[in-house]
């Protein structure tokens, strides 16, 4: 396993879950700091300069969503949510508050590490020069020239479709809630028009995906939102 060489904070009250998560991350080469409560986690996050925070939503002392909000008020560190609740509203709330991704319990270690890697990759890419050209599945998006081609053929996107694609690309590797996407693309007054978003995502898939019914890049997080995968 290639070393990740990153600093991770794990905020989880259940001792055994915390210990196997920490062990797996350490084996993957991370430096791990543990916290049992939200308050403790916030202190760790403030002092350890973490590259990523893994946060359980069901903490004994504070609501996990509140912890995300607190954290976001002074830090942009990627946050991966662990949720024991089947209810989508908690996840949506946490994501809207600024969390980047979520895992529903029970989860496998492979899945956990994959999410952590994706968030770290994204972080290092943001820190880099930020290329204006994105490539995925034969599609090339040139954000300077505002052109989209697929296998060399130019593809016409309407202004909304293009804005939507840019919003998805900018948050590659994260989960974007319906509300976040609607706000980015249509503006703050349209955050309840979920069906618009779904229809336009459908259009994008028709134009960009090899099989629109089984998309490989514009993925659905049912009941929550979308995730763009390069």
């Amino acid at each position: 396993m290639s070393g990740l060489h990153s600093r991770v904070i794990v905020i989880e009250d259940e001792k055994q879950i915390r210990s196997f998560v920490c062990e797996a991350l350490e084996q993957a080469g991370c430096q791990v700091f543990e916290a049992e409560t939200g308050a403790q986690g916030l202190v760790e996050a403030g002092t350890r300069k973490p590259d990523i925070v893994i946060l359980d939503l069901g903490l004994p002392d504070r609501d996990g969503v509140e912890v995300v909000r607190d954290l976001r008020s002074w830090s942009s560190v990627p946050v991966l949510i662990l949720s024991a609740r089947a209810d989508e509203t908690d996840k949506i709330e946490a994501l809207d508050a600024g969390a980047d991704d979520y895992l529903t319990k029970p989860f496998g270690i492979g899945e956990l590490l994959a999410r952590v890697r994706a968030l770290l990759r994204r972080k290092s890419r943001l820190a880099g020069d930020g290329s204006a050209i994105a490539d995925f599945g034969g599609v090339t998006v040139d954000m300077v020239r505002r052109s989209v081609t697929r296998h060399g053929e130019p593809i016409h996107l309407t202004p909304i479709e293009y804005r939507l694609l840019c919003a998805l690309l900018a948050s590659e590797g994260r989960v974007l809630t319906h509300r976040q996407l609607l706000r980015d693309v249509w503006g703050p007054t349209h955050v309840e028009s979920n069906h618009y978003l779904r229809v336009f995502v459908g259009h994008l898939r028709q134009k960009l995906e090899a099989d629109p019914a089984q998309p490989r890049h514009i993925l659905t997080e049912t009941g929550v939102g979308y995730r763009f995968h390069l």
Binding site: E14, Q16, I17, F20, V21, E23, A24, G58, A84, R85, K105, P106, F107, G108, I109, G110
Partner: peptide, 16 residues
């Protein structure tokens, strides 16, 4: 919640 927690631990330990 109470059922998921031990299952999460089981899955995690088996993976470990």
């Amino acid at each position: 919640h109470d059922l998921r927690t031990p299952l999460t631990i089981l899955v995690g330990l088996a993976d470990t």
